[in-house]
């Protein structure tokens, strides 16, 4: 039986699992902004239902809540926007959950891979992923088109996926 202030306990568990839940949600929705929107709903629901946490596996429970919230978001958005069907989201959610045991290792590998990027690419990532950055404004600052910046970021992300895979393979985690 758990003791202590439930709010403190919730904050501790949520903070510890926030990055994993975000990554899980991000793998199910089209954009980072969509993920942010869904995450806000999930945080509210998790806190409201925290007393119903069936066991100590907060992360697994949170993923279940997240799946449900993503499906609700999808049904809402599907009225005016083309989004993946429920079956596809289930497939992605399964794959995303399966990838979670290596999530922390992958994040550590990502830090290493970022440090290996050429300085200009690393700096572009830093700027593009800073809070409130708009790619069109960043592109204007750099004297490039937004399309060119998007393409460069896509290539960097693919390179980072390759790099993290290689790093995990070296560590026997893949």
């Amino acid at each position: 039986m758990q003791t202590g202030d439930p709010q403190d306990r919730f904050l501790r568990l949520f903070t510890a699992n926030d990055a994993a839940i975000r990554a899980f949600v991000r793998s199910l929705v089209p954009t980072r902004q969509d993920a942010e929107d869904v995450m806000q709903e999930i945080a509210v629901v998790l806190w409201r239902k925290f007393a119903e946490l069936p066991d100590d596996d907060f992360r697994r429970w949170a993923f279940g809540v997240a799946r449900y919230e993503v499906l609700a978001w999808r049904r809402d958005k599907a009225r005016d926007r083309h989004v993946f069907g429920d079956d596809t989201l289930d497939l992605l959610a399964d794959a995303s959950e399966q990838a979670m045991p290596a999530h922390e290792a992958r994040r550590e590998a990502l830090e290493l891979c970022l440090s290996k990027l050429p300085a200009p690419q690393r700096e572009l990532v830093r700027q593009a992923y800073a809070p409130d950055t708009r790619i069109d404004q960043l592109a204007a600052t750099l004297g490039r088109s937004a399309m060119a910046v998007y393409k460069t970021l896509h290539r960097i992300r693919l390179a980072l996926v390759d790099c993290t895979r290689l790093q995990l393979a070296k560590e026997g985690l893949r």
């Binding site: 990055a19 975000r22 990554a23 899980f24 949600v25 991000r26 793998s27 199910l28 980072r32 993920a35 992605l92 794959a95 995303s96 990838a99 999530h103 992958r106 994040r107 990502l110 830090e111 970022l114 690393r122 700096e123 990532v125 830093r126 593009a128 992923y129 800073a130 992300r157 693919l158 980072l160 996926v161 993290t164 895979r165």
Partner: peptide
């Protein structure tokens, strides 16, 4: 690959703040 790509996109927001 799609899952890893999108998860990495989420992780980058945090990792990039450490650059």
């Amino acid at each position: 690959l799609v899952v890893e790509y999108l998860q990495l996109d989420a992780s980058l927001a945090d990792a990039a703040s450490h650059i």
